[in-house]
Design a protein around this nucleic acid. Structure first.
Length: 235
DNA sequence: TACCAGGTCCTCG
DNA sequence: CGAGGACATGGT
């Protein structure tokens, strides 16, 4: 089964997912927003970048708790974050796990942003794609998935995001799955170069992986069962 | 209780 | 390179 077919089946079954969730003006928790695929302002772009770091190998619900604490403390952007002391910031983001590492990652990202792109993340993310991605990857704590999530969801750049779910699905469907890059190249090579599709597809894969294509897959009612190698698996 | 979650870094061989 | 371990909280 080809990627575009899978995309259409998932979209048919689940509908638009409204990624990436961001906190509305005045709110204190991120919400999904189907129909509005772009961040509306600089604050939201930065929140997406923070979320991309905080959600590393972590359940999103725990990231939401961290955002709630950050927002309750009045921290909504890089400048605010840089105004905190390490110990205090660690406490705020503690529910998201790996809080000693993540405090460093967030602060490092914010420091780099403020020092090199005072006009903001939106400005930074307009640079030419290839070197821009390399620049993100050069930051400590920003790996391929985090960089690509920032590029796609905060920057609206055409980069397909691969995650653990995508690799698992690729494996089960018989797509290239050995490494991040192999799966990413395959997806990019078999889909229109569309930010809309990259955005929605990744979100739909996460939805499918949580609902059906778990580590122990439950293939009953899976919209992809018909063309999948693992189709006989049941909880 | 044990396993898992929208990874990344470091160290070895 | 690539495999293996460390990093950590909260939900089921």
């Amino acid at each position: 089964m080809k990627p575009l077919k899978v995309y259409n089946l998932l979209l048919l079954r689940f509908g638009p997912q409204g990624w990436w969730p961001v906190t509305p003006a005045g709110g204190n928790a991120p919400v999904y927003r189907p129909g509005k695929p772009k961040p509306e302002n600089e604050e939201q772009r930065q929140e997406i970048a923070f979320g991309a770091i905080l959600t590393q190998n972590t359940a999103w619900g725990n990231v939401e708790k961290a955002f709630f604490a950050l927002h309750s403390a009045g921290i909504r952007d890089a400048a605010g974050l840089l105004g905190t002391k390490p110990d205090f910031l660690r406490k705020l983001i503690r529910p998201s796990g790996y809080y000693v590492q993540k405090e460093k990652k967030l602060r490092g990202f914010c420091r780099y942003l403020c020092e090199n792109y005072p006009a903001g993340l939106g400005d930074w993310l307009k640079k030419p794609l290839k070197p821009l991605r390399q620049e993100l990857l050069s930051l400590w704590g920003v790996g391929p998935e985090t960089a690509d999530s920032i590029l796609l969801y905060a920057g609206g750049r055409p980069v397909f995001v691969v995650d653990a779910y995508t690799l698992r699905l690729a494996e089960r469907l018989g797509w290239p799955s050995g490494s991040y890059e192999k799966t990413q190249d395959f997806m990019a090579g078999n889909l229109p170069r569309s930010v809309k599709i990259y955005n929605e597809f990744h979100a739909l894969i996460v939805r499918l992986a949580k609902e059906r294509c778990r580590k122990k897959p439950d293939c009953r009612l899976c919209p992809l069962a018909k063309g999948c190698k693992a189709r006989f698996a049941v909880v």
